[in-house]
Structures are given as C-alpha cells and as structure tokens.
Design a protein around this nucleic acid. Structure first.
Lengths: 283, 283
DNA sequence: GAAAAGAGTTGCATATTGTCCAACGAATAG
DNA sequence: CTATTCGTTGGACAATATGCAACTCTTTTC
C-alpha cells in the first residue's frame, strides 16, 4: 500500500511554467507532464481560481483573469461561467467583474475544519524522518517551556533521557532557540529566569547571536548541549500571522559530522513549510 | 450593459436534480440544462468538491465521493487526481482517503477576505485588542459549528491549542453561547447532539440560563472551559434582521480576576456595535 | 488458509467535449 | 464619427473525458 500511495503522491509536482502573459499552446500541455491520466479542465479551472485569489476587492476583469491563468479571453470566460453556475465565483452585477463567491467560503470553512496543526506537523515530520532514516521530535509550548509531544523513531537507534513530555531548555536546545526567535519576551522571560536560577546560563550576547542566525537561516542547530553525543536541527512550524505553532527537530549523532547537508536541510525545511502552509500560514 | 449582465446572471440556477445515489447518464447532462456553453468538467469538478465538503473530518473514501457526486469510481478518481495535483484536495498517505486540502483553505481565506462583515469586524476587533493589549479571535459559523477565522495577537502571549480553523464548542464557549442565543435551533441542534455524543454535556437548564443572560447583557463569558486557564468575553456582530454574522472574542488569563471591567466591556461592545452598524444592522 | 469480495487505480477505443478563430454588440476614447 | 477595447457567443475540428474491463492490494468470509 505504501508503495502505491508513494508513487501516486510523487506524481504531484508539475509546475506551471507559463507565467502569466502568454497563451498556452495546447501542445505543451499534452507533451510535458501528466504521467497519470486526470482531468485537464479541472486543473485549468484551478488556475482560474488561483488567478481570482489575488485580485482587488471589487473583483477582477475577465481580461486579467485570462492573462493570469494563461488562457484566451473566450476560454477564461467559459471557465468563469461554469464557476458562476456553481456559485464558486460571483459576477458583480454592477461592474461585471468576477470574484470568489459564497461557495468558495463554504469550501474554505469545510477545509478549515480539518486543520489540526499537531497532527499535520507530525505527519510531515514522520515522512521526512523515514526518508532520512533517523529520529526526531515535535514540540509545542507547554507550561514550563518547549515540550516534546511526539517522539518519532526513524531508524537511528538512540538511547536518551528524552521522551514525550520532556521540557527542552530555551537556552541550550535548537528548539528553544526557535521559541526565543519567534515568541514574545513576555512569554519566554520567566522560563529563562528559572533556567538561570537552576544554573543553566548562556550569555545574552550569545543568545542574541543564535536568534539572529535562526531568523536568517530559518532553522537552528545544536550539538550535544541537551543530550551529550546528540546533535539536533530544528525548524519552525508557523501558523497564520506568523505565530509559532510547533517545532520539528531532526536528531543525529555528533560523530556524523556532515549529516546535515544542504539537501537534507532543505528537505526538513520544506516539510516544515508544507506543514505551515497546511495550517494557514501565508508565507 | 445592465441588460447583458442581467440575462447572463439569470441563467444561473440550474439545480442538480440527481441527488446522490445514481450515476448520471451523459445524455441527461447534454439534454436538460446549460443554455450557455461552459466547461462541463468544471461543474462536475465542483460536484466532487461538494461531495468532499460534507464528509467526516478524517476524509472520505473514493467510493463515497463517487456516489455523492454521481460519478463512476474511475471518473471520480480522475477528478480527485486533478484536485490532488493542484493541492485543492489531499490524499492521506495513511488511509488513502480524500479530503479538502491546503489550497482549499487558501481559496476560502481569499474569499472570506472579500466579505465585508468579516473585514470590518476584524479591523474593529484588532483595534480594540491593541488598545486593551490582549489577544482575541473572530469566529463565523462553519460546517461543524463556530469556527475561528482570525486569531489576533495583541500583546498577551498565549499559547493554546486554538488556531485559525478551530471549531469552538457550542455549550462550553462564550462564542458558542452567542450562537445558541442568536441562531435557530435547527442550525445548532445537530452540533449540540454531536458534542453530547462526544461527552461534552451541559444541562439544558444551564444553557438556557446562559442564553437568557447573554441576551440581556449583550455578551457572554466563560472561564477556562475551552482552554484551561483562559477566560473569554464574546460579543455578537449582527447584520440586517438581527442575523448573527460573526462573533468577536477577547481573551485573558483567569488569574486576572477583574480584567473585564465595566469600561473595558463597553469598549468591546461598542466595537461590535460599530461593526454591526457598518454592515447594515439597524439597532 | 484459501477464496471471494471490495477498494483504488489504470489502459484503451470511442465520441463527447473543449479549443480556437472570427465576429457581434456595447462601451469608451480620440 | 471612427477606432479600439472588452465581454460574449457560434461553429468546425481535434483534443479530451468517458465507460468498460482488468489489475493490484486489502479485507472479509468460510
């Protein structure tokens, strides 16, 4: 089953190489892609919706929709007609412009009901871990700081004191750095204070350096600071309004010096970005 | 111009007379409707989306989608494939089921942004939250009950399981009480039934008490019933004919006993009233 | 434990259906 | 008034969706 599902999900990423201004020769469509047979008209229809998504409040002209979706005016008109018939798109009586309609809202509400950040982030992390053949964890903010809520074994046998429920240090874990990066001081200050009272002290300068770096790179790393012999790379999962919802971490042994290669990092990051998008983040 | 637009808009309401269980003979399609030439595949595609809209939250089987949309399995599969290719629909790797995907959320949010009430209410709420230095949310009625459509961080750092897309309980949230107060039983009854089946039971007497109170006061409150440690005050945003269009909620920590002082409550209420007036409410 | 039923997926021939071109009416500009 | 642009529509042709049947994999049944 997994094989079937995998092959089918992999056939996904055909990009629209036609940007906006040129009309599509039909040859291109039949030539380049689509190893699996599907309904072209539907995919074109979605292009039309995409064109309607970022348009002024008072609606888009047919002309613009046609351009953005790479269709002729007559073609675009017919697609819009079908969407109007079904209520997905509305045509304003006043100015004749087109805009997403009531049914689009209904679709969105139905889709929203399925949004479950933790589950989605967990799924994405799990598939990355399987691919990279290693182990990782998912965290969210808990009462005492970043808290491990999922621990996913993916091939790398690790024996650590970490488990579901563990609270990670803000100052000494890659996960913690992400919370420092994305959350307000009011939230993190008391936790830091308590960590320092317990003897874990990292200088403000050093923290600031790591925060800046995390913000620039889009991820954070540590080597052996939480569990000796274990290094980690953590990426943020963001929600609407750039709110930090969770973090995904991928672990490895510190011996494997160059475990976190560019392509691997990209894989991890894109998993987090995909999860973020799925829960409403507009990057 | 108006004549043209009118004729074209009038050609809209062709109903789907095929309910759900029968497969459509192609003859019927070409025979009965569609005086204006459009893209059949798109309208069929929307039928598939409609089938996905009212399905269990963990996705629908291909079989059920096919039935509900009146297509054969192979046909339904191809439509779903196209939607999966475009991100409108997602296929769960685990169980192979289909459900509305990330792009559907984007479409819905784009459509929502064009809805005047939502925009106005969101703006008003945002300015109140900034003034009160706290966090709040906007809800509208969705497929499974009151649904969070905006989450506005305004100073109070809160980490909860709540997010854009969360469905709030009717019986246990201040938002829910408002829907019970202003909406018909026909709308709310099935949701309440499902909540009670899931174990969330508040007695009818207690609900009635809260409803009466909400109607008198013009707002509703709860303390820690949705998210432990978090209390909320919600006010209704009404449209023409006293229809409940949305709700605005302001959050605070339960520790801050007297957060909701008279003047603060008045600020929140007047923001909601202003929004209501702006969208046609005649108070 | 093997067979049967059910689910999801795919190939292929056919004709239904979308595409392109051109044209029309209406509005706006020059 | 003429010229241009825009939304819309008709018709011939060819691309494309359809329906059937088969295949794989899973689940159920006996």
């Amino acid at each position: 089953m997994n094989a079937r599902k995998a092959s089918q999900l992999s056939a996904k990423g055909d990009e629209m190489e036609h940007q906006a201004t040129e009309r599509l020769p039909p040859k291109d469509l039949s030539a380049n892609d689509s190893p699996r047979k599907a309904i072209q008209s539907v995919e074109i229809g979605v292009r039309v919706l995409r064109a309607l998504m970022d348009c002024p409040r008072d609606g888009a002209h047919l002309r613009d929709v046609a351009e953005k979706s790479g269709l002729s005016r007559s073609q675009a008109h017919r697609y819009l007609l079908s969407f109007v018939n079904t209520g997905v798109v509305e045509q304003k009586v006043q100015n004749g412009r087109y805009a997403l309609g009531e049914f689009s809202v209904r679709i969105g509400m139905a889709a929203l009901a399925r949004v479950e950040p933790v589950r989605i982030a967990g799924d994405n992390l799990a598939s990355v871990l399987e691919e990279l053949q290693t182990t990782g964890l998912l965290s969210v903010w808990g009462n005492y700081g970043p808290t491990v809520i999922r621990w996913i074994d993916g091939g790398l046998p690790l024996f650590t004191s970490l488990h579901v429920g563990s609270v990670l240090p803000l100052q000494a874990s890659s996960t913690g750095i992400l919370y420092l990066t994305h959350c307000s001081r009011a939230l993190t200050r008391p936790v830091i204070a308590q960590e320092r009272a317990s003897g874990l002290v990292v200088s403000d300068d050093e923290l600031e350096r790591q925060i800046v770096q995390a913000r620039e790179m889009g991820y954070a790393t540590t080597q052996g600071t939480v569990v000796p012999g274990l290094s980690a790379l953590s990426v943020p999962v963001l929600g609407s309004g750039n709110r930090l919802v969770a973090t995904m971490s991928v672990l490895s042994r510190v011996q494997e010096k160059h475990f976190y290669s560019k392509p691997k990092i990209e894989k991890i990051r894109s998993a987090a970005i995909a999860a973020s998008r799925a829960i409403g983040w507009q990057g």
